[in-house]
């Protein structure tokens, strides 16, 4: 197994932490993982993205230009990364704020209305977990049990009480992906 993903959106949407939880989940099931963020001023109010690779074997380059899955959470990222999906790969996006939906016919396009669902759940903070759930429904590269283990490992002890709400958000995402 080798899965190369980029998650891209605004700073503050939980892009980096979503990638981190995914990477931790990979560690929990014995994968090789790499997590490479964009960093610096571009994160402050601008766009943020993170490349996550999960693999059974040693990972060569953490820097890649094509992805099995591209997860897009704002229009700028759509403009930048629509063409970075490998032919036959997956593009998953939240339609909220997207003015120019993807046009490519050689990839599988899915949507998850995560902004709207997070509003319904009354918890904007679980937005990224809804997206993660949607992704895991499409690509079950890690099990939900390992995600929970990953959350436990990556969150400080005092935040562990938030894990059930995150788990719930993942399930909502899994049920709602289109």
């Amino acid at each position: 197994m080798k899965e190369e993903i980029i998650i891209a959106g605004f700073g503050g949407q939980g892009v980096l932490s979503m990638g981190k939880i995914l990477a931790y989940s990979g560690v929990m099931q014995g994968n090789e993982v790499s997590w490479m963020p964009s960093y610096g001023p571009e994160m402050r109010g601008g766009t943020a993205n993170v490349t996550v690779i999960l693999s059974d074997d040693r990972i060569s380059s953490p820097v890649i230009q094509e992805f099995d899955t591209v997860i897009i959470l704002n229009q700028q990222s759509m403009d930048k990364f629509e063409n970075a999906v490998k032919p036959g790969g997956i593009l998953l996006y939240d339609p909220n704020g997207i003015t120019h939906p993807p046009k490519r016919a050689d990839i599988k396009v899915h949507t998850i209305a995560a902004t709207e669902l997070a509003g319904k759940l009354g918890n904007a903070k679980v937005f990224n977990m809804i997206v993660l759930g949607a992704y895991l429904k499409l690509k079950p590269v890690v099990t939900i049990e390992n995600v929970v283990k990953g959350l436990k490992k990556s969150l400080p002890e005092r935040a562990h009480k938030l894990i059930p709400a995150n788990e719930e958000a993942i399930r909502v995402g899994m049920e709602s992906v289109e």
Binding site: K20, V33, S34, W35, I59, P62
Partner: peptide, 9 residues
């Protein structure tokens, strides 16, 4: 910066 910023096992 890449190796400084990236996470691996």
């Amino acid at each position: 910066g890449i190796i400084g910023q990236m996470m691996e096992k």
